[in-house]
Structures are given as structure tokens and as C-alpha cells.
């Protein structure tokens, strides 16, 4: 027990926080994206500890597998590798830092003063069968709307990022 929490949670939390902190402070954009991946991996470990296996593996597939790769691609398409930035922080970064610290203080105060002492009820780990049945019976409408949203978003992203075509049909 470290600080009143178990060792596995402490390690996963440290991995996540160090990854996020590195993403916040590093100067090289590619390093930022890689430390973001570490933070996503730590969060997946925490989901696995919380008996949410499906969400944990979805996190690994979607965030580490897709979003991180997408971020790296965007960095490489907009800027060369190895370019270290001179101006990393915005002009009013002190204001942003104060705002973030204020939000953290507010959230921490609310959590520490209001959470009753609850223990996790013992459950059987939800199976993929139960999750699939739940998606197909109870959540079938959100599932379909998500499918439409993903299709629209991906087509929209391709159209936004596509080079503009001139009237004679050729790319610029």
C-alpha cells in the first residue's frame, strides 16, 4: 500500500501521469505523441483493474492503435521529424496554467469532500456476450447513431483534408 492505494493502481496511475506530464512539457512534437501513447496505455491498465476488460482493450485498439498513429501522421504531414520548436508555449501561458490549476483544485476539493466511503460490489466480470447483448437490445439506437456519426465524420475528415480541386478538374 502506497498512499493508501494498492501497488498495481499506484504503478498504473504513475505511468499515466508521467506520460501525460511528458506530453505537456516536451519540446519535440513526436516525443509528445509517444508519451501520449504511454498515458493511454496506463489508462488501459486502470480500466483492466476496474474489471472493464472490454473498455480496456477498446482503449488499446482505438487510442494506441488508431488515434496515436493518426496524431503521428498529422505531425509528420505538417512538420518534419526532429524539428524542435522555439516557441512552444502560447503568449498567455501563465493564464492557462493558472486556469488549469484552479480547475484541478476545484475538482480535487469536490472529490475529497463529497465521496462517501463505498466499497466495490462484488460482480462477475462482464463477458463479451453480455456486452454484445446489451449493445443489441438496450443500446441498439445509440449504436446505430454512432455508426452513422463515424461514417459522416470519416468522410468529412477526408473531404476537409483533401486538396482543393480547380474547376478544370485537376488537383492544385
Amino acid at each position: 500500500m502506497i498512499f493508501g492505494v494498492g501497488l498495481p493502481f499506484f504503478l498504473a496511475a504513475m505511468i499515466t501521469l508521467i506520460g501525460a506530464l511528458a506530453a505537456a512539457t516536451m519540446r519535440n512534437l513526436v516525443h509528445c505523441a509517444l508519451s501520449l501513447t504511454v498515458a493511454f496505455g496506463g489508462l488501459a491498465l486502470i480500466y483492466l483493474q476496474l474489471d472493464a476488460q472490454f473498455a480496456g482493450f477498446a482503449q488499446i485498439l482505438v487510442y494506441i492503435g488508431a488515434v496515436a498513429i493518426l496524431v503521428v501522421f498529422a505531425i509528420l504531414l505538417t512538420r518534419g521529424v526532429g524539428t524542435t520548436l522555439i516557441h512552444v508555449y502560447a503568449q498567455k501561458w501563465v493564464l492557462g496554467l493558472l486556469l488549469a490549476a484552479g480547475v484541478f483544485a476545484l475538482l480535487g476539493w469536490a472529490v475529497l469532500t463529497s465521496i462517501p466511503r463505498v466499497a466495490a460490489p462484488a460482480i462477475a466480470v462482464p463477458t463479451v456476450l453480455a456486452i454484445g447483448q446489451s449493445l443489441m437490445y438496450d443500446y441498439v439506437l445509440p449504436l446505430e447513431i454512432t455508426a452513422v456519426l463515424l461514417t459522416v465524420a470519416l468522410i468529412g475528415a477526408v473531404i476537409v483534408a483533401m486538396p482543393e480541386f480547380k474547376k478544370n478538374g485537376g488537383a492544385e
Binding site: 493508501g4 492505494v5 493502481f9 496511475a13 499515466t16 501521469l17 501525460a20 506530464l21 506530453a23 505537456a24 498515458a39 489508462l43 486502470i46 476496474l50 520548436l85 516557441h87 512552444v88 508555449y89 502560447a90 501561458w93 493564464l95 492557462g96 496554467l97 486556469l99 488549469a100 490549476a101 480547475v103 484541478f104 475538482l107 480535487g108 472529490v111 475529497l112 465521496i115 463505498v118 466499497a119 466495490a120
Partner: peptide, 24 residues
Amino acid sequence: PLTAYLLLAAMIFALGLGIALTRR
């Protein structure tokens, strides 16, 4: 345990907000 998880989430949220507000 619940407090620990919520505090961790608050820290990650604050870090993300800090990144979004301070980076260029």
C-alpha cells in the same frame, strides 16, 4: 479506492486542460 480513481481523473483532466491552454 473510488476517491483515488476520481483524483487521478481530475489530475489527467487538469493536465489535458493545461496542455490545451498553454501550448501553441
